[in-house]
C-alpha cells in the first residue's frame, strides 16, 4: 500500500494511466458491511484479476463499478469510484452512459433469445438511435465477431438464434455484443466458470487478445486462470484488499502471509 506522501506526489500524468481509481470504498448490504475501505487503482489497457475466497467482496466490488448493486434497495455505498477521472457515483452522471462505457460479462452466458446478428447490434441500436445502414450494420457485426475470434465459425448462420450456440460461443458472443458501443472498461464476473476446460482456454485466449484495447477487470475463483490470464492481481479477504501486485510478483513472492496461504490452497 502506498503512503500518503507518495499519493500526493502522484502527477496527473500518472493518474491518467489508471482506468479505475477506487478511494475508501465502503459498502453495506443492510447492516452487513461487505467492503471495508477498498482503495486501489486499475491500470488502463491491462488485465487485472480479483481473487479471493467466496464472500470476500470481489464480485460486490465488480458490481459497484457499473452500478448494478444499487438496484438492490438496501445497498449503501460510501467512497469514490473514478472511471477515467470521473466519479461514477456523482449525481450528474447518467447511468445509461456508465453502462455504455463499462461493459459487463456474467458468469453464465446470457445471450438474448434473438439472432446472433441482432445480439451484436442490440447495444449499438440502443446507443445510436438505430440509425445505421444495412452495410454499416454488417460491418459492425463482422468487426465485433472478428474481435472475439468467432467470425469464421458463425458467419454463415448470423440469423440463427444465439441461444443455439455452445456455451463457449455464447460467452464469446456476450463479449462481442459489448464491443460495438466502444466501452472503455470490461468487467468479467467469473466468465469461464460455466465452461469446460476447452471453452475456458478459448475464452482466456480471447481475453488476452483484447488486452490493450480495453481495461479489463476479471473476477475469478480459478487461481491458475488469474495467473495465466492477468497482468496485475488483487487479493481480497473479508471485504478488504490484502495485496495488489503484478501477477508474477503476487504468485511468486507474495508479501502477505494471508496471500501466501490462499494461493497455496490453505483456505478458500
Amino acid at each position: 500500500m502506498m503512503n500518503n506522501a507518495a499519493q500526493i506526489a502522484e502527477t496527473t500524468e500518472q493518474a491518467q494511466q489508471y482506468a479505475i481509481r477506487t478511494e475508501k470504498l465502503n459498502l453495506w448490504y443492510g447492516t452487513f458491511q461487505a467492503l471495508y475501505d477498498v482503495d486501489f487503482n486499475i491500470r488502463q489497457g491491462m488485465i487485472t484479476s480479483l481473487i479471493g475466497p467466496s464472500g470476500c467482496g470481489k464480485s460486490t466490488y465488480l458490481r459497484s463499478v457499473n452500478r448494478i448493486n444499487e438496484r438492490l434497495g438496501y445497498v449503501r455505498i460510501e467512497g469514490n469510484i473514478d472511471v477515467f477521472g470521473q466519479n461514477i457515483y456523482d449525481p450528474s452522471v447518467e447511468l445509461v452512459q456508465v453502462r455504455k462505457q463499462i461493459g459487463m460479462v456474467f458468469q453464465r452466458p446470457n445471450p438474448l433469445p434473438i439472432s446472433i446478428r441482432d445480439n451484436i447490434l442490440f447495444g449499438h441500436k440502443l446507443h445510436s438511435g438505430g440509425r445505421a445502414s444495412r452495410s454499416e450494420q454488417d460491418g459492425i457485426v463482422e468487426d465485433a465477431l472478428r474481435q472475439v475470434l468467432l467470425w469464421d465459425k458463425v458467419k454463415d448462420r448470423l440469423n440463427r438464434k444465439a441461444t443455439e450456440l455452445s456455451l463457449e460461443e455464447q460467452q464469446k458472443l456476450c463479449i462481442a455484443r459489448l464491443l460495438p458501443v466502444k466501452p472503455r472498461v470490461l468487467l468479467m464476473d467469473e466468465p469461464c466458470s460455466a465452461l469446460d476446460p476447452k471453452g475456458t482456454a478459448a475464452v482466456e485466449e480471447l481475453i488476452w487478445e483484447l488486452r490493450g484495447k480495453y481495461s479489463i477487470l476479471i473476477v475469478t475463483h480459478n487461481m491458475a486462470q488469474a495467473r495465466r490470464a492477468s497482468e496485475e492481481c488483487i487479493f481480497m479477504l473479508m471485504g478488504k484488499v490484502v495485496e495488489h501486485a503484478t501477477t508474477d510478483q503476487l504468485f511468486v513472492s507474495p508479501q502477505s502471509q494471508q496471500t501466501a496461504d490462499y494461493i497455496e490452497g490453505r483456505y478458500g
Binding site: V96, M104, F106, P111, L112, L178
Partner: peptide, 10 residues
C-alpha cells in the same frame, strides 16, 4: 438474465 443483459448494455 435477459433483463440484466439489457440493463447492462444501457
Amino acid at each position: 438474465a435477459f433483463r440484466e443483459a439489457c440493463w447492462n448494455m444501457g
